[in-house]
Amino acid sequence: MNNILVASEVTKHFGAHTALNKVSLEIPKNCIYGLLGPNGAGKTTLIRIINQIIFPDDGAIFFDGQALKGDHISLIGYLPEERGLYKSMKVGEQALYLAQLKGLHKHEAKKRLKYWFERLDIGDWWNKKVQELSKGMAQKIQFIVTVLHQPKLLIFDEPFSGFDPINANIIKEEILQLKANGTSIIFSTHRMESVEELCDHIALIHQSEKILDGKLSDIKKQYKNNNFEVGMAIDQADDLLQELTTNFEIREAQFDANEKQLNFKIQLPTNDTRQLLDFIDGKANVNQLVEIIPSASDIFIQTVQQKDL
């Protein structure tokens, strides 16, 4: 089996509201899988079903080839979007408690906690109460507690919220390290730039349905539309621009008279740029020709809007 998790036609209703409608996913092992979608799309419902917090009305989930069951809880680590800690409990005691709830032995949990506390440079917090910590500090504890029992599958829901950029980077590095160690990761977020940086696969959920999924690079290929950004040095742009506009779809054309530089975006009928270069044919010195690869954000917005039409 190459998939750590398979969802097959998962459906969940809350009263009259359908939270998930026949959602099927295949999450490959050892990758970072981005679960994307607007607010209220059903991501959290799906994540809660995977964590067996709630149960689907229909459909099935398979974890590592087996139908999802209670034992799998200790193989999954979950960092919810709505997260917190007992305010009046001491950090060390609390981390131990949560680790033990995941099935770790007290002794082993203590050893690993020591390791992680040192790794994230928070060794002297053991006897502090959570209410004495800043929000970012508490988030670090929460991260540690999520990964401590070395789960096969990690689920992060907006993991970077509450972190300053420096600590967010530390956590990002840790996530990549976990992936390198063989962990599979589901990553749910609105922050598209982190999707670009981290995710190998994505699925887009909108209005309770999956509307797109696959490898991020494949999806990008699929969504690129023979759009190019072109720059050229030319003394007088008007004539050429005129000709180009009649033959191609030109957008955002800009001519800088001082620099004698013309920039524009162009959509070609095929992915072959030679037709453009042949057309220009020495009338100008092309100094920039880049294919526009849509960002995850573009894909997200475009797909959702298409769906809404």
Binding site: I53, Y78, Y86, V145
Partner: peptide, 18 residues
């Protein structure tokens, strides 16, 4: 109520049944 307001509840019920 404390577990709800401190938002630890979801962390815990991902480990144990409610």
């Amino acid at each position: 109520i404390e577990e709800k307001t401190s938002r630890i509840i979801e962390v815990i019920i991902s480990s144990v049944r409610p």
